[in-house]
């Protein structure tokens, strides 16, 4: 099929960017979206032009690297899929496909479609872990975990840290990501130990990074490739309130 691609081109963080249109004449519906971009880049390279920079790693929907907004949707219009798992059969012959980088103050564009999502790493460093003394690995069943709790924790742990929630949120809020990490740990006995400290410092770091405030728009859940629920945000709000008033932390 034939496609018109309208892609955001930007040389660097402080450079001015703009949309550039490209024509692709031979796109197979079996291609993945990223393969289609490769076809474009081959074409650009053969014309002696700069290829489009975009990020990817696993190509199986688990690393969260392939950040881009396709026709207004973070990771593309198909719900519950990352851009790398999106296939061209979901597009029509002759369609114009607009591809933009994630837009948020805290995710500055590095080049073309690549943004700097290291703000998420710093939020994880602030508390997205459990402290474990090293030594002999203990028996896996030594700490009993109730099945429903572990399922809920697992659902939250499905977050791949891709940042689509921030990209989709009109406020560029990182609440869904942070609440998924908080929930994932706080629902398990191992995570309970540092629960109060964790939620306070992760929220503080989130605010320091300059993400917006949550207005409960729920665009994050709708666009999240892993279907992380805003119930996690409510859980984080509860945890946060309880920790503010009962912990010893400032």
């Amino acid at each position: 099929m034939k496609l018109t691609l309208k892609i955001w081109r930007q040389g660097g963080e402080y450079k001015k960017g703009q949309f550039v249109n490209y024509q692709l004449d031979q796109v197979s519906e079996h291609m993945s979206f990223l393969e289609m971009l490769y076809v474009l880049n081959e074409q650009l390279i053969s014309q002696g032009k700069e290829p489009v920079a975009f990020e990817h790693d696993c190509r199986e929907g688990i690393c969260g690297a392939c950040s881009m907004v396709i026709n207004g949707h973070a990771h593309g219009p198909l719900q519950g899929t990352t851009a790398c798992q999106l296939h061209m059969r979901f597009f029509r012959d002759g369609q114009t496909v607009t591809i933009e980088p994630f837009r948020a103050k805290s995710f500055p564009v590095i080049k073309d479609l690549v943004v700097d999502r290291s703000a998420f790493d710093r939020i994880i460093q602030a508390g997205g872990y459990v402290s474990v003394g090293t030594g002999q690995a203990q028996d896996a069943n030594a700490i009993p975990v109730e099945k429903d709790q572990s399922s809920m924790a697992f659902d939250a742990a499905a977050c791949i840290g891709c940042g689509a929630c921030v990209a989709a949120c009109p406020n560029a809020s990182a609440m869904l990501f942070v609440s998924a990490k908080v929930s994932h740990l706080t629902l398990l006995p191992q995570g309970k130990v540092e629960a109060k400290k964790r939620v306070l410092s992760m929220v503080r770091q989130m605010d320091l990074e300059g993400f917006g405030n949550c207005s409960n728009v729920t665009a994050c859940e709708a666009e999240c490739p892993k279907g992380i629920s805003v119930e996690n945000i409510a859980r984080m709000n509860r945890e946060y309130l309880a920790s503010v008033f009962s912990s010893e932390e400032d």
Binding site: F19, Q79, E100, A104, K105, A172
Partner: peptide, 17 residues
């Protein structure tokens, strides 16, 4: 919140909820 979104908006704007 407006500031957090940054200067450049999306060319295609859709809100799913």
């Amino acid at each position: 919140n407006h500031h957090a979104r940054g200067g450049q908006g999306y060319a295609v704007q859709v809100v799913r909820a």
